[in-house]
Every structure is written in C-alpha cells, then in structure tokens.
Design a binder for these strands. Structure first.
Lengths: 356, 356
DNA sequence: ACGCGCTCCGTAAACGTTTACGATACTATG
DNA sequence: CATAGTATCGTAAACGTTTACGGAGCGCGT
C-alpha cells in the first residue's frame, strides 16, 4: 500500500518497486512492454509511474542495452551555412522527427563549432556514443566522415549525396533534374550562352550542379565554357558578385542559372545598376525557392520542393539501414534524389531575339 | 608489453588497463587528471589511449557521476521560427560553444517538434537527463517551463527575458534601448504619428517591444494609439501585411518601426505599389539587421548586434548558475540586456514637413 | 498421484565508469 | 631502528537499468 508518499520526484526504479511492493525486474518488464507480466500489474505499474513522474534514467538504460534511442544530426555552423541555409535544417528536421517519433527516437542536432575540424568533432561524438545513428550534412567531395562512421559500425545517412567510396545511404535534392529543366527551358527561349553560379567545387553540391549543367548543354550541342561557371557564395552578396562577373564577361551571357534563390536579390540589384533589366535583357532561373524572394520584381522562375518531405525520406532511409528497424522500412535503394517542381515566373519569360 | 595488438577500437577501460598492465582505477585517474598518479604512468596512459582511440563511454560515466557534460539548447521549430529566425540560433550557438568548449561541455540542440507541446517535450528531456543544464528560447509571457526546470533543480538560462515568476537567469537583446532610440530619432525628424510592428503579445518579445514603444512615446508626450500597433509575422510576408495595414489606417502614420529587418522587403514592396516611397513619404526604422536586406533601396536604418557575443554572454550566465562552474564565472547579475548599435540608412533620413 | 506446460514473478548478473578506501613501498625524521 | 608521512596504486563498491535464468503456483491430462 502507498504509505502516504506525496508525488515527489522518483529516485529510481527501485523506489518505484518498493512503492508497489513488487520486484524491480517486474517493474522494468511492465514499463517496457515485455510479454511475461500480468496485465493487471502492468496497469498498476504504469499508473504509479505516471503518478510519481518516473522516467527511466537514460544513462542506466543505455549502459545496459548499449543503445541511446537518440539520432544525431550533425550540422556545420560554418559561415557559409549560417549565411545561406535559412533554416534549411530546421525544416528538414521537422520531417525527420515526424518519422523518428513513431519509434520513440529523439533527434538531437550536433552543431560542429566553426573552429573545430568536422571530422574530429564527429569522431568525438561517435566515441562518446551520444547517439545510435548519425545523419551528416554538407558532405564534401571526398569526405573522411563516411569511412569513420563505417569503421565505427554506426548506422548513418547523409543529407546530400556522396561521391566518396561505397554506396552509402543518402537523400538529396535532384540537382540534375533542376539543371536539365532550366537549361531546356532557356534553350527553348532561344538562349545559347547560359551562365551558372555554384559554390566551391569541393562541396558535393558545387560539383554535381555544374556537372549536370555541362551534360545538359551537351545534349543541346552547346559547348561548355568554363568561364560561364561563377563560383560565389549562396547569399545576396554572392548574387551581387555574380552580377559583377556577368558584366565583366566580354561576350555577355543572355541567361543565368542561380543555385540559390536569395542570390537573385543581389543579382537583380547589380545588373539593374548597369541598366540591364532582368526578365527582359537577361533571363534568370533559380534553384530552390526560398520564401524570402517572393517579392522580387519581376517574379523569379524557380524550383520548389518540400524540405519536410525530404526529411521524411531521409529518416526512412536511415531507419532502413538500422538493424532494429530495417524490416519495418524495406527499401530497394538507399539513395534517393528528391524531385522539385518548377514555379514559372517572369524572370525568364521572354523570347530571345534571334539577332545577335 | 604490447602484444602486437593493432589499433582496433577499444572495448572499454578494462582492455586499456590490461594492455598497460595497470589497474583500471589508475587508468581512470590518469585520464581524468586526478592528482594521485605518477606523471610517468599518466603519460603512458594518455599515449595508449590516444593510440588505441579510447574514449570513455559516456553512459557509464554519466551513470556513475550523475553528469553528462552536455548542455541542451531547446528550440521550437515552429512555423514562425522557421520562417523568421534565419539562423539566429546557429549564430548564437557559435558563441555558446566558444565558452562551453573550454570546459569540455558539448552543446546539443533539442528541436521541439511542431506537433508536440514544448512543455511536455522539455519535461521528457529533463526526465531522461539528457543534459546537465538547459537553455530555453522563445519564452512566452507566462512560461511553465521555468517552473518545471526550477522544480527539477536543473540549472538553466533563457534566451529571451522572462517575466514569469522569480528572477531566472536570462540574456536578451535590448529592445527597450532600440525602441527608445528609434522613437527619439523619428521624433527629432518631426514625426508624431509612429506605427510599430510586433509579433503576438503572448510572446515575450511582442510584449516587451510594444511596452518600450509606449514608454518612449510617453516621454515625448505623444499619446499611445493601439491602432498603430500592428501584429504581424516577422517575415517579408508580414512586412507586406504591415504595409497593407498602414495604408488602411484613416490618418496614415508618417513613420513605422519594424521588429525584423526582413519585413522591410515586403513593406517597401507594398507601399511602393501604392505610390508611396520609403525614405521620402514614410520613414522606416528596423530592429536587428539581417544580412539579407543589405540591398534594399533606400538603405534601411536599422540596429545591429553580434549574436555571437550574445551567445557568449548567455553561456557565462548559465555557467555562473551551475554549482560546478559558478566560482569561475562570478556575476553580480544573471540578467543581461544586450546592446545594439544604430546603423543609419536613408530610410528615415528626411525631415518631415511641419505642414500637415 | 504424477508429470507437464503455462503464467507470472523474483534474483542476480551484467553494462563501463568513477572514487572512497586501504595497501604498499619508499623517504624523512627522531 | 622505529615511526610517521608521502606518493602511488589496486580493490571493490557503487550508479540505474535490463534480462537471462530459475522457481512458484496452477490447471490439466494420464
């Protein structure tokens, strides 16, 4: 019988067992839904735990069963990211959690400090066994983190495709599709000289984007001109810089593909300073709609997708490669390119005059 | 002697001890910098640990000493946040980490899912003892989380001031100062009818901002008109909406104070659609410079601060309220208002004609 | 009466650390 | 030489769980 104890915080499963006059083994089994426990006593245990606010100590639990029920999402708060990701991660995180929460898995974000090597940071986190599985982002062209995780035998998936080594699980946006669609569209409007902006080529994204661009051009029999590839930051500032570079080119392109919509703000500004009007003198198409640039004039033609759903996809890919959940998420492939939808605007709506 | 073992991953401190032919107690003491261990053996232990890649299992450690060496930063990825915080958190996080890392404390971000009650989420995290201390953000006017943390006796600090209950530790931006400065400036330019935008008043920020605004007006003998307080989201969209509301007012304000710089993009757009030119027909001043709006025309008068340094301040406040670190961070006050710097632009640079 | 299977529960051993305590060897002191 | 003090280390007990194992009670068929 309860000896008048008020619901003060529990000290452990032992107290809860004493309170109920049963053994701690039974209490544990009752709480964890094990089969060999009377339904009657299970109810009593659950009720008492609820009332006394008992929650199993995570350290004890993980120590015993070697599992933390936590998924880690590593992000680099690099200057680049901080400036351009405009809550990319928070949005994807929502999708991830909607899946993980079904399995009582908690997601934590692990922000790697600016001044620490991402590899060392991840190594530390892995060694501490802070999470059962890891999601890494902002993958580099060659990224040692893949080997680290593989060697440590910890399940993982990448947000952003991997080119390094084996067939690691990842989900990524369909850069190829976007670039293909953009080039097709521009060519159909009469453009032949099409510039493109991309981040540094060590970053996977920077490589893949330009690669797709080159192939798309080839399909149309347009020669690839490296001078038209402009490396810039994915920010308004970067867009301004892209504008600068465009104006500096001897034979100015008639169209430009941006990798990040915010850049359009800076680009518009720069070219308009030079008396060039977007959507009239130069066509602009951009990847990945940010809600930011909605107010641009003329309206920007861009590609949109649900980052939330991308998170869902990535979560399922990760779970499918975790032994404890793999049978629940059977997959034929653990790589996924996520489609985007074209949002036509006015910024590329004009037909180029055939006259040079 | 090492019996030819290649540096494969360690299984525990026991193996490391066997490898070195000393007891696990000594190994533990050596690794943790305890005094009663020979400097010679300490070196050997450290070297072996480094070579074999041994890192103490966090679960075992926390179980024993009841501490995790982790600080949790809870964020709500609410729609509001996702849309407007533009990496506010990631930037502050950098400052937090720069302090925590000096004490081998790791920061993890705990994103509360949209569909979960923040209070319940925090309760779960606290019960799991996932972190030694907590930082909460986006505090509400009355926020039960403060009581929860206080009752659980877990050290915490808030990013955003608290109005609920006792004197909890927090750091926050100096909204009062900003609003005062903005109103002073506008009044000096001849404005008397000044509108302001703010988020919903349940959010502390929404309340504090408007409160400061009212007091500033009173100082100048200008009556407070509730109709001039426009509640809107802190996004371009919200700015557009603010423009709408302004145009709808019978006696149109000659100036407006925005709470978030991005809103200016939408606001500019809306009022210009109505033929009203910012910085000429209406004065605009905004709080908290986002790097986003740098390209606005006319340049926006706004207030800037270092969110990184705000993070540093917040970290020190938190540590000062943790018994293990308090002597290292002595403070007279655990509440801190963080100053901002005025960045004059052209958007409020005109003198209002005295004629009505 | 006996054995068997089933349901339910208690016991105790792990999991990997840290740390209080005691043991040992050595040095200094009388 | 005896003793006290110091430096260094080993031993074992915790920390809070989960879970393999076995035991008690019961019903049932032979």
């Amino acid at each position: 019988m309860a000896h008048g104890g008020k619901p003060r915080p529990m000290k452990g499963i032992r107290q809860l067992a004493e309170h109920l006059d049963i053994s701690i083994g039974t209490v544990s089994r009752a709480l964890n839904g094990k089969p060999d426990v009377n339904e009657e006593t299970r109810k009593r245990v659950l009720a008492a735990a609820e009332q006394l606010g008992y929650v199993a100590n995570q350290s004890g639990r993980s120590l015993r069963q070697g599992t933390t029920n936590v998924i880690g999402l590593m992000i680099q708060s690099s200057r680049e990211t901080v400036e351009n990701s405009d809550n990319f991660f928070l949005t994807v995180t929502g999708g991830l959690q909607s899946v993980f929460s079904r399995h009582n898995l908690d997601l934590i974000m692990l922000p790697c400090p600016h001044d620490e090597d991402p590899y060392e940071y991840l190594k530390r986190m892995v060694a501490r066994r802070i999470a059962d599985a890891m999601i890494i982002s902002e993958t580099q062209r060659v990224d040692k983190r893949f080997d680290l995780l593989a060697k440590a035998k910890i399940p993982f998936a990448a947000l952003g495709r991997s080119l390094s080594g084996a067939q690691h699980p990842w989900a990524d946006l369909d850069f190829d599709g976007v670039v293909n669609c953009a080039v097709d569209r521009l060519v159909a409007h009469g453009h032949r000289r099409i510039a493109i902006s991309a981040p540094a080529s060590e970053i996977n994204l920077g490589f893949v984007f330009v690669d797709g661009y080159r192939h798309a051009l080839e399909r149309h029999g347009i020669p690839y001109d490296p001078a038209l590839v402009i490396r810039a930051k994915s920010s308004e500032q970067g867009g301004y810089q892209v504008g600068d570079e465009l104006l500096r080119l001897e034979s100015r392109p008639t169209a430009v593909i941006l990798i990040y919509e915010l850049m359009a703000i800076g680009l518009y500004r720069r070219v308009m300073e030079a008396g060039i009007i977007p959507g009239q003198d130069i066509a602009v198409v951009s990847f990945r709609e940010a809600p930011r640039a909605k107010f641009l004039q003329p309206a920007l033609t861009c590609f949109r997708t649900s980052l939330h759903d991308l998170g869902v996809e990535l979560a399922e890919i990760l779970l499918s490669s975790m032994p404890a959940y793999s049978e629940e998420y059977p997959r034929t492939s653990r790589q996924s390119v996520w489609p985007l939808e074209l949002i036509p605007g006015e910024s590329d709506a004009f037909q180029l005059r055939p006259a040079k």
